[in-house]
Structure formats: C-alpha cells, structure tokens
Design a protein around this nucleic acid. Structure first.
Lengths: 238, 238, 238, 238
DNA sequence: CATGAATGAGACTTCATTCAT
DNA sequence: TATGAATGAAGTCTCATTCAT
C-alpha cells in the first residue's frame, strides 16, 4: 500500500499531519483575515519549512477554509512573499528608527541595538524568517535580491553605521566596519536560527544551557572590549 | 508502494526545473555507487532543500537511473539521513584532527582553529550540511540529537576548551567559555551559511564585498582583543 | 452546499480570465433581472462554452452579484437550460412567423426564408445557441429531445414543406425533400456556427473573404438551379 | 450536503462519472501508448467536450493510470492539441493526395471527394474533431489559426479547386468558387457534427431517418445539377 | 431581496516509489 | 543488478454554491 516509507514512529509529531477537525463557523472578517493568515503562515513556515507546509494547514490554523486563503493570496508563493515582506518591513522600520534618534555613547548604542533586536525580533516568531529565507532563497531567486536589498543592506548599514559613529568619535579604534558589523550580528542571528531549529526539539538540544541574555551580554562585552581604543603598552595578538 | 513523504514538491513556477541534461555515462564501479549518490544528494539537498530535490535528479547527477537509487537507499528520507550522517562524520573527523595536541599560545590556537575550519569545512561543500540540517531538523527530529551530540557539542568543546586553556594560562581574562565559544563560531558558520544561499545567486547578492579572509581576520582580531587581559587602568564599557 | 457540477473549469492558461471590470451599475428593475441574466449567460456560454463560463462572470455581466444569480436560478445547469429554452422559443417564433401563408413561387419562398433566417437568426447572437447546443448536448441529453422536437423538426418541416410545395406545383423536379432540406439549411447554419467560433478570433480567421450575403446568394442560386425541372435533352452527372 | 444540484435522474449516463474500476496491469508499451492515449482522448473529448473530460478518464480509457498520461503529454491542453494535430494531419494528407492525382470529369471528382471524405472521415471518430474545435477555439485562440491554416484553408483549396477545374474545362458554368465550395462542404460537415451530438442520443434524435448515403447522393445530385452548364432555353430562378 | 465572504469538492499535476523487463 | 515505464497518493488551486449580514 502507499504511504509513508518511514515506519519508524520516532518521526513523530512533526510529520503527523493534523486531522484538521472542527469545521469552522462561517464568520465575516475581511479586515482581520490577512493578518491572521500571515501569522498562521509565519508560524507554520518557520516550523516546517515552506514546502512541507500545506496551504490547507495554514488556512486551518487561521481558522478559515482552504478556499478562503486564496481569496486573499493568489498562491502559496505569494503568501510566502507576503509573510516575508510584512515581517521584514517591521525589522527595517525598527532599525531605522533606532538608528536615527540615538543619543549617548556608541557602546550604549550597540548595546541598545542588540537588546532591542532581541526583544523585538530575536525572541519573537519573526526571527524564524531568517531560517525560511536561508532555506528557500535558492528556490526563489527573486526573493534573494529583495531580501538583500530590504533587510541585509539596511541591517549592515545600521550596525556598520553605529561602529563608524564610535570610530569617528574616538570611542572605538579604527576597524573595517562591514566586517565588524557582520561579527556583531552573526551571533545574534545564529542564536535565533538555532532557537527555531534545534531549540524547538524536545528535549531542546543544542546548547541547552545557553541563555540568550547571557549570550548577548558576553558577546557584547567581548565585542566592545575588542573595539576599545588600546591602552598604551598593550599588545595585540597576531 | 508509492506514497509521498513528509513534504510535497510544489515549489512551483520559480523553480527552473532543469531538463536533466548531460548524463555522465562513464562506467561506474558498483563499490563507489553509494558514495556517488551521497555526493550528488548532498549537493542537491544543499542547493534546493530536501523537498525541492527530486530523487530522479539525484540519480541522474550520480549517473544512474532512478531505480538504481532505490537499490542503495530504501527511501528519499533514508538517503537524506545517510547524507547528513556521512558528512557529519567527515565534519567531526576534520575537527578532531585539528584539535590534537596543539602547542603554542591560545591566541595562536584559536587563530589556527578558525583558519583551518574555514579551509577544511567552511569553504567546502561540506559546510552545506549545516544549512540542510538547520533547514530540516524540524522535519527530521531524530537528526537533532544526533547532530547536537556529534557536531555541536564537540565543536563547543573544541572552542570553549581553547578559551578555557587561555584563561587557565592567564593569557585570556576570565569569561563564560560557552558563550564566548558561540560568539567565536557564529560569524564563521553564518558566513558559510550565506555562501550556500545568497552567495549562490547571480549576481551574488548579500554583501558581495565581504571577503571571507578579511572577515575572519577582523573577527579574530576583535575577539582576541576582547579576550585579552585588561591593562591596568582600562575601563570596560557598559 | 457547494459542489461541482458535471464539468470542471480548468481550461487553464489560455483562457484570458478577464478581471471582471466595469460593472454596469445602472439601477435594474427586478422584473428584468431574469432576462438580463439570460442575455449575459447566452453571450458567455456562446463565447466560452458552458464549463469555461464562471457564474460570477455571468452575474457581473448582468450587473448583479454572484449571490443574486442564485436567487433566480438554482444552479448553473438550470441557468444553462433556461438560456437554451428561452432562445429556442425565440428561434421557433421567428421561424413560424416567416412561414405563415406565403404567396408566390416556391423559389421566392425559399429565397425569402433564407434571407429572413439570416437576418433574424443567423446574423444575431441567437444563432449562438446552435453552437452551445451542438457543443453540450452530450452533457445535457435532456436538451436533445427538446431541441430536436422544437427546433430541428419544425425547421425541417419548414424547408421540406417549401420544397414539397415546389414539387407539387411542378416548379421543382421530384427530389427527396428531407435530404434537400438538410442541404439547404446546412450552409447557412454552418456559416452561423463559424461566425461564433473562428469568426470571433482576431484577426478573424477561417475564410475572411467569405461574405455572408454572397454566400447565401450563391448557395441559393446553386440550389434553385439544382431543383429546377430539367430541360428536354439535358443530362445529369453521375 | 455538497453534490450535484440536479436531483433529476434523467441527466443520466453521460454525467455519471465512471467508477474507474479494474486496476490495470502494469505493462510496458512505450511505443503504442501515445496512440492509445490519443484515441481515448479523441473519443472522450468528442463525447463530452474538452473541459468535461477528466484526464483520469482518458488515462483509464487508454488502460493506464493518471500519471502515465503525463509521461507522454505534459498537460491536458497539450494532449488536446496533439489529438487535433494528429487527426488533422490525416485529413490534410487525404485531401491533398486525392487532389493531386485525379483523372476523370470534375463531377466525378466531386463525387469521389465527397464519398471518400465520408468513408475516411465523416463516418469515423475523426469527424468529431470538428465539434471539439468549434466548441473550443474561443478558449484556445492559437488553435484557431492553426486549424484555419492547416485544415480549413486546404479544404477550401481542395473543393474550390475541383470546382474551378470544372469551370475551366467547360463542364461547370462560371460560379464563385469559394462560396460554392462552402455550400458543397457544409452539408457534409454539418452531418458529421450532428452525428456526434444529437445522433449520439438514445434514442437518436434529430432526423433519425436521414441516411448519410442518401443525403450525400441527394446533395451531390442537387449541387452538380446546379453547377451544370445551362441548356439553351432554360430559365433561372430570380 | 442583495451582497460577497466563505466553503469544500474535485480537477490538474507532480513525483516518490514500484516492478516488469 | 540496472533500467525507466508505470503507478497513485497527495498537494495546489478553482469555482459552484451557501449564508451571515
């Protein structure tokens, strides 16, 4: 008979497609539907990946029927793009706002940036978008340019701008700003990536004792010291 | 009997479905078949993801027919697991080779570790399994513990061991070793991840001017300074 | 409850699915709704066929909403039958009006019949129901007997009656009347059929230089000569 | 509950979708499959129309499974085109062959043409293609030009050529050849059209007593007399 | 009566898997 | 063993029909 080739039951709950029970009551909610669908789609895409998520699941999770989804988004792909787009816009807005009106030392700026990012993005479902995009860009080439232009470029501008600010004010020593920006962002995003992959296992695997806050603090401490202007007499490693 | 596993395949119109051209018809030895299939599968899984890779593509890339693939691997899922497992072993081997009994300063050790990792793993196709695993663990939970135990834990042991070695010798200031290890590895892995997603676009998007070597150097410079024992009279930021 | 009828709708990519633009919002009287729906449906069924016509298109073309259509016709099939039935009645009325008590030669009668049919039926949208019925009888067998009894039989009666009239009066030579009636009607109907299929292409294909009037004249000329009593000494072909 | 809105059982067997029983035995027949699929598709398309025919029905009628159909034809639309194309090629070939090497009177030529057409086309399933094309050109605009160029134009050339031949030899009186060609072909094609629509009903409706052979004979007799050069002293109708 | 958002059966199509050769 | 034609489960998407407003 047809069916799953994996008889091993250990493949468990992630693969068991939900029975999609309890027929939803007909409700008119044209205004809120798109958001509900987007939220449901984000959660499912992050959890299972794009291809492994069925449109019917998304619709059901949003409390509507299969057909209703297509009333709002003409295809699964468009839904995907809308998810990325909407959550990306938030990211961009966040960063740009912070970048614009900050007063205080550049160390404080970086510190604020990191903590805010964690609170507003890293610790929310939106962080999962990085995972989806990372996984799917090859299948959606146009998404790549879009994401690069709308997310990666602004993010780089944000962080390298903050570093440059510190250098210009004499607070930081001169360093290649783009490379440092990468080094600053990577541990954060990587953490988010893991929380949405390994971190979701039960029991959570990976580094279970790796507390996000502790990680951010340590990372920040390390980076800021690394950026600091050298005291006279100090030696750098090769 | 037939049947779909886990995921579907409708990645739709964007996916330029290659016509499966140029079959490499050179005579293969039966002994090397599994390896050739594994290599082909690795490349394709990394490039397109698990669901978007067709078994026929894998077989064709390995120079055999669809049916032959199933002579060696009972299902696409099994093939996938074999790919991950085999490359994991390689990864571990790499890591352990590097470790050994290093002599010299801990700064030099970290420097050596990073450069070696990049040469032997980060810049090779093998780095792609990071991407697959990250993308698919949620669909293959059983791989999570395996990967955590065989890759992440050893890697953490490697880097946090190096850091601890420096602290013990008085070369580094006291820091939380696991967090620092994460901060050290993340930019490297993140870079590798991007090379297998955005970096593969044409034209390459992301930060095209981000040279791996420059990044590693800068990252290392930043981290080692951050680890260095403080000069008398210096103040840390926040 | 929902449900598909008979046919599906996947006429796919070629069908330029019109965006349902320009809704005619003039206030309609409830009394005329059924007629307006029928008119819209006739036009669309003729143009695209039954299956490829969406109920929403019909409703939109009639200036009402999808739901309203179902207030008047319980299903798409019922709408279709109503369209055929109503236009059949028109068709018959046309024919019977023409017949009546014609005075003059039978040649003149045939000439008058053909020209009138073309003016009143062949060149009007009503001719399109020939096309629908022809295309869909197999899917709607119940329409067959109806159409045969109400249209084909009277039409045959009309034309074979005219021919018999000519034979009886000695104007025409003796011929099998039903066969001749078919031969008389076919070119007219065939022309009408083509105008609703090929003739609607842009640029119009088929025989673009085939003028209906010229065709009718030629056809009539040919047929009447063929019907004429043979002159002494003439020989027939085969 | 969902389902057919037509509770009337008289809609009967044409609509009852066959249960597709008796699972076919796996057989390799790569060579004959295309023809078998084309035959099955022709029969079903003619019987039910394009949209109302399910690909699975076609496959089943050809003795294969749904998937196999797609091994040979990439889409339902392509299958449709292949059907038209293959049967059209036959039509064209037939006509052209006859046209080229005929010796004898033009009356005999027309007689031969008609009878041959009936034997080789009109009385075979291929005649049903006219019905499909007539019904579907509006949905497949590119089919229109194709059909016009490959079928209608050659057919016109064939018949108008035969008529012109007769005129040139003095056998026929001068007439507009294209119009006459239409008048000659229409009753034949119309007959075929009816046989594949009304004629397929049970009991056959339309003009049940209209024998194809009698019709052709009568039509030919009428037309040839109409074409004949007038005897001295004869009068034409107005 | 009218609307149009919502529903869900069902069509087309894909591709993992099987098996006759 | 190897092949590739054949299978059929399952997913995306459409649209006839319903019903809350």
């Amino acid at each position: 008979m047809p069916g799953r080739s994996i008889t091993d039951q250990s493949v468990s709950k992630n693969l068991s497609k939900p029975p999609l029970s309890e027929p939803p009551i007909r409700q008119r909610r044209k205004q809120t539907r798109p958001q509900e669908l987007l939220d449901a789609a984000l959660a499912l895409f992050v959890e299972k990946g794009f291809a492994a998520t069925r449109t019917e699941e998304v619709a059901h999770a949003a409390g509507v029927s299969k057909g209703t989804l297509y009333l709002y988004y003409p295809s699964k792909e468009d839904l995907f793009k809308a998810v990325v787009r909407q959550n990306l816009v938030n990211l961009i807005t966040e960063g740009l706002e912070v970048l614009a009106h900050f007063e205080g030392s550049s160390s404080d700026l970086l510190c604020h940036l990191m903590n805010t990012w964690w609170e507003r993005v890293g610790s929310t479902p939106a962080a999962g978008i990085h995972k989806i995009v990372l996984s799917e860009v090859r299948n959606f080439p146009e998404l790549a340019t879009f994401y690069a232009a709308e997310v990666m470029e602004p993010a780089d501008r944000l962080f390298s701008g903050a570093v440059r600010r510190g250098i210009d004010s004499g607070e930081f020593r001169p360093v290649p700003v783009h490379e440092v920006a990468h080094a600053l962002m990577a541990p954060m995003i990587f953490l988010a990536l893991h929380r949405h992959s390994f971190g979701a296992c039960s029991p959570p695997c990976g580094n279970p004792d790796l507390d996000p806050r502790a990680l951010i603090d340590t990372h920040l401490d390390l980076a800021l010291r690394g950026l600091q202007v050298r005291q006279p007499g100090a030696h750098s490693a090769p």
